[in-house]
Nucleic acid binder design. Structure first.
Lengths: 250, 250
DNA sequence: AGGCGCTTGTGAAGGCGTGCACAAATCGCG
DNA sequence: CGCGATTTGTGCACGCCTTCACAAGCGCCT
């Protein structure tokens, strides 16, 4: 693995590494840091220590420092991190300075809510088109956008240069919709439909399955119930040695 | 850690291990296996090979076998896994045979959709109560349920013995709502509000932040763009050695 | 009854991520 | 100008997870 050290590359301000290929786990945490930083900025804080920011983001401070060190050496020893600079830096890495266009397919129960979700716009994402296969929904206005028929996806996606698509259709139609999105040039898909999508290798897919989250919680309920229900058959009389941190994984 | 091997414990059918304390990563995949198995059962399949089920669930077959081996030794060599048996087994482990009661707090844009989300009921979760702090929303009927005021949470949660709560409020009110849920005896929380919740150690929290998912996709868009945009400055001329699997992590 | 092909279950290795603990660096104060 | 307090950045070790590869076991066919 050739690994260029810190060489700045044309295309951005000096000192910014080309692309630090961050660990996936780090990438997943950067948005959380960003949210915490925005919150700090609103309260007027100029700088944050890794300890403070870690607490605000709900992670270990060492982990946070290691994560941030991957982006480069911002932050001053003895002082902390410059909030504004770090915000700018993370937003750059995440590509949020581009105000990315997003389209949403499937204006059902969930899609309707997503179309109006304020959290998208506030983070630099613009939902620029809504699609549905149901002719009865086409023409409906949601949050200032008109629902279009899915057959127009290709044309509109090209016009608006949409790179990110959100699928909120029933499970059965998720795969054809994904195919259509890919054909229209979309290279990132956020899928809310249960099931596995198969897409070309250059397309990124992230899945959010609300029912799965509940099932994981259900497991922990089951586990907790079976632990407390055990009268004494297990062996250990004392409940536990150390306060087990109950933050359920990722 | 005392760890009883395979001793069957009172409370379930013979041969079922008490509680195999599964790896967290395995738990997160079980619901996906379950969905794939249900799909297979509908098509009339009696048995599945690990290869087939792994493909349906979008994972490596070795990983699937190791995951399932943690639940015990179901499955027959040379044949595969009995679909119906495995469904039953996973549902038991996940605690889905209990038809768990769920309450939802915050009937805004997203909460409204969640209240009507069919995927919950179909997986054995019953949304039994809706709450909101806004008096104008109290009394509204959504999907056959009346929105109640949040002050009644404690009483109703006790009546219905609700153990799982879903938070779909604005960020600012998420923490007080979480506190109220905990006070009402809820021990598992699914949080859709951005931000970090602090809860007692015995309460499990899972977070779903829709904006974070988009930001992760945005990062990969940025990465892909910066890779293809590099004319030849980086060094490596050949794009890659092996076909990089582009499934974005967890 | 015996052998053959197929599939599970698992030992071992490698990689990734986490967390500790500490050296290096910076600021402020006397 | 020097010193101490503070905080970053990171080397290192440990544990979890993934993946490969293969032995063990099962059913079917002859």
């Amino acid at each position: 693995m050739s690994q260029q050290r810190h060489g700045s590359t044309p295309g951005e301000a000096d000192g910014v590494p080309a692309f630090p290929d961050l660990p996936e786990a780090t990438i997943a945490r950067l948005p959380e840091y960003l949210r915490a930083l925005h919150h700090l900025a609103e309260t007027g804080a100029e700088t944050v220590s890794s300890e403070g920011l870690a607490a605000a983001a709900g992670v270990n401070s060492a982990k946070l420092r290691k994560d941030l060190s991957h982006l480069g050496s911002y932050g001053t020893r003895g002082v902390g991190y410059d909030v504004a600079l770090l915000v700018h830096q993370i937003e750059y890495i995440l590509g949020l300075d581009k105000n990315r266009a997003v389209c949403l397919v499937g204006v059902g129960n969930l899609g309707h809510a997503l179309a109006g979700y304020a959290g998208f716009a506030s983070r630099g994402f613009r939902v620029v088109a809504l699609f549905d296969a149901d002719a009865r929904k086409v023409g409906e206005e949601i949050n200032g956008l008109i629902v279009q028929h899915i057959d127009d996806l290709q044309r509109i996606a090209a016009e608006e240069s949409i790179a990110i698509g959100v699928i909120a259709t029933p499970p059965g139609t998720a795969q054809p919709v994904a195919d259509a999105l890919v054909a229209a040039g979309v290279t990132s898909i956020l899928n809310f439909a249960p099931g596995v999508l198969s897409v070309p290798a250059n397309v990124d897919v992230r899945k959010v399955d609300l029912a799965i989250e509940l099932q994981i919680l259900s497991f922990h309920e089951h586990r907790k119930a079976s632990l407390t229900a055990l009268p004494g058959g297990g062996g250990r009389s004392a409940p536990a040695a150390g306060g087990e941190q109950e933050a359920v994984g990722s």
